[in-house]
């Protein structure tokens, strides 16, 4: 509608630049994934010769078969899923509850609570004191170290509070007149109305916990039963050249009878870890785009 009848040279050059830039971006974004997918579907020994780009040369599903039947991987996937679901569900609910409380402009402790939460974004006890604390609390070598420390994050809290602040205050007033308690107001009015922003932080939380490996390494690395999918991948990557660990040992045994290579394991693990998220996120777009722009981090 803004386009003039005759396109100037500048106009054409600009379009050439824009489309080149965007096509380049798409290529650079997608290529590493497609290449990894191709390697994961290619026969392991054949991949060593190089020259696999976007398409497998000797197609096989053997890499997937051997990894997906590995009980350690299966168990780790279960732990990943459990921590992701638990933290997302409880974390989102609890964050919403506190966000409602500090969104109430007349609440006397509002400033205090906001401050002690926001400060945690910048001041942290650091590695060693935190480690000692978790040890004291019995959270080392314990599944709950994945869930408890991250339940309410300041950043998410501020996003939700900003959103709730934008809801009409008269809703709360009229509910009060009807005799609703604070908790009922939160549960029956605020929670349903905050769905868009809660979806956003639920996505953030879920992605964070699905991706986490650092806490596994720090607190639970001695217990294979508490390992997560991401940490297993991390171990495969770290020991890419020198295979070690129980899982790799098992795979190495398998490697003698058939053709599976470290590179193939890495590629296949990468795809297994990535696929769940890559399949889900396009459908959640409207939530995170909307939530990000609505909730924007500001007072």
């Amino acid at each position: 509608m803004l386009r003039s009848k005759k396109r100037s040279l500048e106009d054409i050059l600009l379009d050439v630049f824009i489309y080149t830039f965007l096509f380049l971006l798409i290529a650079i974004t997608l290529y590493p994934f497609l290449n990894t997918l191709a390697v994961s579907l290619n026969e392991g020994m054949d991949s060593i010769k190089g020259g696999i780009y976007l398409w497998p040369r000797e197609f096989t599903t053997f890499n997937y078969q051997s990894l997906l039947t590995d009980s350690q991987i299966f168990h780790a996937a279960g732990v990943s899923l459990a921590r992701t679901v638990l933290t997302t569900v409880f974390g989102t609910f609890l964050t919403a509850m506190l966000a409602y409380v500090i969104s109430r402009r007349d609440f006397v402790l509002r400033k205090f609570i906001t401050f002690i939460y926001v400060l945690t974004m910048y001041v942290q006890g650091g590695l060693i004191p935190t480690y000692f604390l978790y040890q004291r609390l019995g959270l080392t070598n314990n599944f709950w170290v994945y869930v408890l420390p991250g339940l309410v994050a300041a950043f998410n809290l501020i996003i939700v509070r900003t959103y709730i602040n934008g809801l009409p205050e008269s809703l709360i007033e009229s509910a009060k007149i009807d005799g609703a308690s604070e908790f009922t107001i939160f549960l029956k009015i605020i929670l349903p109305l905050s769905k868009p922003v809660l979806a956003t932080i639920a996505i953030f939380t879920a992605v964070y916990h699905w991706s986490a490996w650092w806490d596994v390494f720090l607190y639970n690395s001695s217990n294979p039963a508490l390992s997560t999918l991401q940490y297993e991948l991390m171990k495969v990557l770290a020991s890419a050249n020198s295979m070690s660990g129980s899982m790799q040992q098992g795979l190495a045994n398998a490697a003698q009878s058939s053709q599976i290579t470290p590179r193939a394991i890495r590629a296949t693990m990468t795809i297994i870890v990535t696929v769940p998220i890559a399949v889900i996120y396009p459908f959640l777009q409207k939530y995170f785009v909307h939530g990000l722009t609505l909730g924007g981090v500001k007072e």
Partner: peptide, 18 residues
């Protein structure tokens, strides 16, 4: 846009590997 979000959703373990 959809494609451009993809790397945000993967972990750095995967990212560093790529």
């Amino acid at each position: 846009q959809t494609i451009s979000y993809l790397p945000h959703f993967i972990s750095w373990v995967v990212g560093a590997n790529l």
